[in-house]
Nucleic acid binder design. Structure first.
Lengths: 152, 152
DNA sequence: CGAAGATCCATACCAAAGTATGAGATCGTT
DNA sequence: AACGATCTCATACTTTGGTATGGATCTTCG
């Protein structure tokens, strides 16, 4: 939905046209005001101020149309893993696997079966994994890993 | 994090000041260019065009700073508890407390200390809690409770 | 009032988790 | 080739987790 909205909101082409038209309209309006009220000497600074304000608004509007939605698509998956954090954690591939299965509530024996290794091996991975995450228990490891976005 | 970024990114006050300074700088620059290159008649339209472009950029930038982050805070809280699920689970108040502390990685002893009860009491709550959630281990309980949105 | 559920605690016992130590095999890199 | 890291496994031991059983209050509700 967001992706469609982002790309479909405004084509590059029509955006440019609209843009030019708005600019022209602003200038025309200012000239008109100047003429209509016989104010010969509206200073350049005033023009610039008005235009600046107006186009800040335009930029804001454009931003909400083009950027906001895009940001959402970037942020929503933030509930997932942060590759950077995974690398920083220093966990090996195997340790990460064990950790993920732990998070799903599996016992060491079940993990061993699923990975086709022995129970001592899983315990070995567990211990080194706990050390790297600076925790003492599996539940703590899971909690920390989730808060660090190392696992989903 | 997002909340801090959203409110701390730009104070209303400093925003206005920056804004005025940028505007002043732009006008000054244009005047300088006009003087420096003896271009007496840079038309008002050119000024306006430049300023419009610049401040569209400013608006865009502001938008990305202020709007994007705001979107984030709207999206994130979607991951909370489902009161209905909590009631349906049949967990008592105390069992729920124990479960929540489990999810934070605390040991039974730590939970006992935090709730000012004995270790056997916590074990008692744990066991009945496991039965109600139909699990055998605390890690499994936490996993299930989270998927059911019984806990955050 | 009496039954039901919740909370609290205890003791005992078994299962699982975690630690310590050591060691063999593989692999990529210096 | 030598080194470090990873993966594997084992054995022994300690700690924590979980079950079973039972008992004591206390509250709520029909």
């Amino acid at each position: 939905m967001s992706r469609l909205a982002a790309s479909g909101a405004l084509g590059r082409w029509s955006t440019m046209v609209m843009y030019g038209l708005v600019l022209a309209a602003v200038v025309a309006t200012l000239k008109y005001v100047e003429y209509r009220f016989m104010v010969k000497s509206l200073s350049t600074e005033v023009y610039i101020g008005v235009v600046a304000a107006l186009f800040t608004g335009v930029g804001l509007w454009l931003g909400s149309k083009l950027i906001a939605d895009k940001k959402v698509v970037e942020v929503v998956p933030a509930t997932l893993v942060d590759e950077q954090a995974v690398r920083t954690s220093g966990l090996s591939a195997r340790e990460l696997e064990v950790l993920q299965l732990m998070a799903e509530g599996l016992s060491n024996q079940e993990i061993a079966d699923k990975l086709f290794v022995s129970l001592p091996t899983v315990k070995s991975h567990s211990s080194s994994l706990f050390t790297k995450l600076e925790v003492k228990r599996r539940t703590e490891a899971v909690h920390r890993a989730k808060s660090l976005r190392i696992i989903a």
